[in-house]
């Protein structure tokens, strides 16, 4: 199983070859969902005109930042070298994982707290829920490792 831990100033993501491939595949499959997701494209204003102006100013920047974050994660997963992240790189992973989790949860129809209890243990162990849990685990471990510094 993967291990995520702090090593000096860096966060080490120790994952095997197959786990890296699996994570890269998940990213590849979920990233296109972000564009259509309500949760990953939040509104700042209720008023349409104010929202339009807000999006005109920051919308493309936010999209680019998210794409850059995803690209950084993909690059690390696909590289043939150990994954060692500095603070800013770790934040790229955290943000990406959050967007991927939101998009997947939305696709699954998860809308309210307590959704975990609506699924059987068997469903929790199999995709797509198992995918959500895997992403949650990586994100939680990264937060813990970064906070531990």
């Amino acid at each position: 199983m993967a291990e995520i831990r702090r090593s000096g100033e860096l966060i080490e993501v120790r994952v095997g070859r197959r786990e890296r491939q699996a994570l890269a595949k998940i990213l590849e499959r979920l990233e296109p969902m972000l564009e259509e997701s309500h949760w990953t494209n939040s509104r700042a204003y209720e008023d349409d005109a104010e929202e339009e102006e807000f999006q005109r100013l920051v919308g493309s920047d936010l999209e680019q930042a998210r794409a850059d974050d995803m690209a950084a994660v993909r690059s690390a997963l696909e590289a043939d070298s150990p994954i060692r992240l500095d603070v800013e790189q770790t934040w790229r992973w955290l943000r990406s994982l959050n967007f991927l989790r939101l998009a997947l949860a939305e696709r699954l129809g998860i809308e309210e707290d307590g959704w975990e209890e609506q699924y059987s243990p068997r469903e929790h162990r199999r995709p797509p829920l198992a995918t959500l849990h895997l992403l949650s685990w990586v994100q939680e471990e990264l937060v813990e490792a970064l906070a531990g510094g």
Binding site: S42, A44, L62, L94
Partner: peptide
Amino acid sequence: AEVTVAQLHAHGLQATLA
């Protein structure tokens, strides 16, 4: 506040201003 909301959105949090 608009900058703050944009930063929260960049981190994937649901945020608005009023």
